[in-house]
Design a binder for these strands. Structure first.
Lengths: 342, 342
DNA sequence: CTGAAAGCGCTAACAA
DNA sequence: TTGTTAGCGCTTTCAG
């Protein structure tokens, strides 16, 4: 039962004494073009030979690779995992595969990866959480590869995207903290210059703060951690200490940052939420793994992934462009936030 | 500059007034077979036309898809992320792509995914953390697809694997706790029946405990959480409470379980490590995100991923089988463990 | 140095 | 219901 060479459709055809066309029809589930007994025979032969169709050859003809390419900034964060899980789930549902690439660092290799995806003739590309530079856009568009942006967008273009409304989400998160009675709500931003998860969230935060300033709220205070990771908190510990004199609530641009802040506060002997309230962003699994559990502004990452994959499939199957989709965010109050006492 | 149809090598050849063979040589970096000026001209045309070689067509001939398939039990855990990151990194280094599948639930779809990988003619398959059933093994072997097992093994077969020595790692972890002066070290196992991360670790734990039993250590106590996830702790909280009367240290079969235990202990008002010591397994990022930071038995997941990918490439390039590789584990003492007082 | 030609394994008209 | 045939885009002998 061991084969030195993988059987081809030709060998199946010969063994079953039919033509390759017939085998092809049966393998591909074409409803007609063969009798019941022919089908039975071919199926038997396929089983005996252990024949597996060569998708590569099929792709050449149909021009469908049944593969979705995903470009992620990293693979190791829970943020990426959640999205990827959603994408893979929806892709599997639609009988597609997922090939991944992570662009690490300054996206120097992004163009390379796009090229590879194009060469592999993927059915579509999901571009996650990175700025879509004109060169990327042109490259993909000129090859008319379906493209969906996830947790990012390209204002002024027609490229479909799926994301939450970051500005509104940040506004709501800040308003939630303000509503708890905190006069001083500081923001720990991921990166002031980040056009995706930085700028819009800071804007939403500022807008909420300014609205309440007349009501006695402290002025906005943005502490730039220059990153969204847990470790990035250490660079701004000094600024946090300063802020702590007046500000009693911190809105972090990511859950990892919030976890970092919680960790720092606990080490300093502060109590959360008694001494300070912490609100994160994303709703990653980590929020419930730390003690106290982190309140956060939820971004439905898995759903975003699912939707993006479905959009790729739809576009490929000729659906109308559709445009962008904003999915709802949600403020989730857990244990790291409480009303300001006194 | 917009193309309705993707240019082929033929069009490049025509535009450059050379044959497709020449274009092919240049594109593939064959050292000879064309003059410098021919090359320059072809390169110009390629650039103008925006030609991208069709990897699919190339794969048909070379029989190399330059793609590595990875089968993971899930995509959303840090365990999987770390491995995947390693695999993708090494794959990119070797100019390979990675296609992923997650077998969720009871591996009902594992066979389907293997089939898809075979149909896609992947260069090799990395099979992660799941039992390799005979049917899987036969399917892959009969098609002579390079296969590497990661964090699992198939005793009695020649299939290469990369993993740590689970039994020894558990033995060392337990010995570490015992060495801290704890008389009672309980184990929270992921699953008693899990042949990969369950049985061997329990065996290592028991061996270490039995060795010290003469020295006054309490008898082994295995609490089966029936899973390795954070949430799985809730099912055994009662058993933990019971154990707490006598046992002062807990060795968890995963970091998530350890984080779950830490969370539970903190909620119960217990102090860690003063009231109980907790040791995890894996060394996931979460260990340093919780407070106190979790001590753990490190499994070099990223390196495991890198090595597995490299092995696939080596095998494909005709390297000798090589057999399995055990990578070293390491007990990392952080803040959740301390010497037993009194 | 260069090109013609023969496929890789499969699908999809088109005949029969 | 079947089979024949012409490619998909590319690589790779083999001639020239």
């Amino acid at each position: 039962m061991r084969f030195t060479t993988v059987p081809t459709i030709k060998e199946v055809a010969k063994a079953a004494k039919v033509s390759t066309a017939t085998v092809s029809r049966i393998v591909n589930g074409v409803a007609f073009g063969y009798s019941a007994e022919t089908k039975a025979k071919v199926l038997t032969v396929i089983d005996e030979l252990g024949y597996t169709p060569n998708t590569i050859a099929r792709t050449m003809i149909t021009r469908k690779s049944c593969t979705i390419g995903v470009l992620l900034p990293d693979l190791i964060s829970m943020f990426s995992s959640c999205i990827l899980e959603g994408v893979e789930t929806a892709a599997a549902q639609a009988r597609r595969n997922v090939v991944i690439s992570h662009t690490e660092s300054k996206g120097h290799r992004t163009m390379d990866y796009l090229r590879v995806m194009a060469e592999k003739r993927v059915d579509g590309i999901i571009f996650v959480s990175e700025v879509l530079r004109p060169e990327y856009r042109d490259f993909v568009l000129r090859r008319s590869i379906p493209l969906v942006l996830l947790a990012t967008e390209a204002p002024g273009s027609e490229i479909p995207f799926v994301k939450v409304n970051d500005e509104k989400a940040a506004f709501d998160g800040t308003a939630f903290l303000l509503g708890l009675g905190h006069k001083g709500v500081a923001m720990i931003s991921g990166s002031k210059d980040d056009q995706i998860a930085g700028v819009p969230r800071i804007r939403g935060y500022r807008r909420a703060m300014e609205e309440k300033e007349a009501g006695g709220a402290l002025p906005p205070l943005v502490i730039d951690a220059e990153g969204f990771r847990f470790e990035d908190i250490v660079c701004v510990e000094g600024a946090i200490d300063d802020a702590l004199h007046e500000y009693s609530a911190f809105f972090c641009a990511s859950d990892e940052l919030a976890a970092g802040l919680l960790n720092y506060a606990l080490r300093r002997g502060l109590r959360v939420p008694e001494d300070l309230s912490i609100l994160g962003f994303d709703d990653l699994p980590i929020t419930t793994m730390v003690t106290p559990a982190l309140s956060t502004v939820k971004q439905p990452l898995r759903e975003l992934g699912i939707l993006a994959a479905e959009m790729i499939v739809d576009i490929q199957e000729g659906a109308p462009p559709g445009g962008g989709r904003y999915l709802p965010h949600q403020v989730i109050a857990r244990e790291s936030t409480s009303t300001r006492k006194g």
